[in-house]
Amino acid sequence: MYCELRKTLQWENPMSEAGALARNLERNAARRYDRFLNDDERLLPEERVRLEAAAALLDESDRIACISSPQGIFASSRMCEPDTAIEYFEGAFAVAAIETGKKPKSRAAAIWSAKGDRSYRIDPAGDGDWELAYSAPVLDGYLPIDTRCPATQGIIPGVDSGAEPIDEATESDILALLFTAYALVESGSPLARRFLEDFARVMVARNSRADEGFHSGGARVTAGRMVMTNPLFARDKPELITDGLVHESIHCAIDHCEFVAPILTVVQTDAAIVSPWTGKLLDINTFIHASFVWYGLVHFWTLANARTSQPTPGALEMLATARRGFIRARPSELIAPFTDLLNPDVTRALGEMEMPG
């Protein structure tokens, strides 16, 4: 699996295991939700009954879509406060029910979809009917851009800072920039765009005064969610956001893989490696993620720059940054003292990582 991922990141063929990884993620999410639902420390009996009644309005595929969304996986985890989890599941189940023609009950004035891309509220002029209050734009027909959902505008996994509300004019500028950056992914490598479709499930855009400049992020416990913080700081360099989209999609793919076969064969280790790209001391799992990410970015920008007679300065800078660490050290050599801690497939994959000539 990790060897196939390494090969896929050369952007010559799609990842054949993508569908199987998505199905495994759904099964894993369903098991986690069942544990959450039956955890007497997290749910009162009446709360469990309420969630079961809300889910009973859905067919199995819609229920699983809510449970296995990035926020759904997080909500089932012990990292999430029970009240927050209940609010998410009740809202997501209710939206899914509304969109199949049913009329759910909810104590909330506004409810949000599983991906945070649609919101409904009770129609004050109706007889308890729900009306669509917000629908997010969607990239390329599959990737919603969440700029407003309350669940993703506060502190979320993978992003330590909160976010400020985005006014409509700023939101419009952010969306235009994200569409431009996404177009650069497709023009750079159609297979990288396909990879995004296979593993990215929602993009969150946030503004934060607590962060300097643009950066992207995500977390395994919200597999498939890509977070773009302060994208307008990269207004004059959309290649930086393009790099972030490819970067985060690779993390999303590794997150999918780790639900099948974890990178580490031990539960915990203090082992760490200095990143040849950033100079930061990284735990082993983070270093492995980084190696795959930079490998994919080297190949992406090599292909993207070869597809035009005049690569932009930003694109050339992205390639140079990605190549830097591989010039300084081979990932396989850096992990050599720790191979007994690693999934053998990961070790083989890193041993096969070579830069394009």
Score class of each variant (00 low, 15 high):
Gly244Met: 13
Val227Asp: 06
Gly224Asn: 06
Asp255Ser: 15
His251Cys: 09
Leu245His: 02
Asp243Ala: 13
Ala223Thr: 10
Asp255Cys: 15
Lys237Asn: 04
Arg225Trp: 03
Ile241His: 05
Thr229Gln: 03
Glu239Arg: 03
Ala223Asp: 00
His251Asp: 01
Val221Met: 01
His247Arg: 09
Gly244Phe: 04
Ser249Ala: 12
Leu232Val: 10
Pro238Phe: 05
Arg235Thr: 12
Gly224Phe: 08
Val246Ile: 14
Val221Ser: 00
Glu239Met: 12
Ala219His: 10
Phe233Val: 12
Arg235Ile: 12
Val227Gly: 08
Leu240His: 02
Val246Phe: 03
Thr229Cys: 12
Cys252Ser: 13
Gly224His: 05
Met228Leu: 14
Ala253Trp: 02
Arg220Thr: 14
Asp236Cys: 09
Glu248Ala: 12
Val221Lys: 07
Glu248Phe: 05
Ile241Ser: 00
Arg220Ser: 11
Glu248Tyr: 09
Thr229Asp: 02
Asp236Val: 12
Asn230Glu: 11
Met226Thr: 10
Pro231Asp: 12
Gly224Met: 12
Val246Cys: 08
Asp255Thr: 14
Arg225Glu: 04
Ser249Val: 00
Ile254Asp: 03
Val246Thr: 06
Ser249Thr: 15
Ile254Tyr: 09
Arg235Lys: 15
Thr229Ala: 07
His251Gly: 11
Asp243Lys: 14
Leu245Trp: 01
Asp236Ile: 11
His247Gly: 04
Arg225Gly: 06
Pro238Lys: 02
Arg225Leu: 10
Pro238Asn: 11
Asn230Asp: 13
Ile241Asp: 07
Arg225Ser: 07
Thr222Glu: 11
Ala234Pro: 09
Glu239Lys: 06
Val227Arg: 04
Met226Val: 15
Pro238Trp: 09
Ile254Arg: 03
His251Ala: 04
Val246Trp: 00
Ala234Asn: 08
Val246Gln: 01
Thr222Ser: 10
Ala219Gly: 02
Glu239Trp: 07
Ala234Ser: 02
His251Trp: 09
Glu248Val: 14
His247Tyr: 02
Ala253Glu: 04
Lys237Tyr: 04
Ala223Phe: 02
Gly244Lys: 00
Gly244Glu: 11
Val221His: 09
Leu240Val: 14
Cys252Pro: 00
Pro231Val: 13
Pro231Leu: 11
Glu248Cys: 12
Val227Glu: 01
Thr242Ala: 09
Ala234Val: 08
Leu232Asn: 12
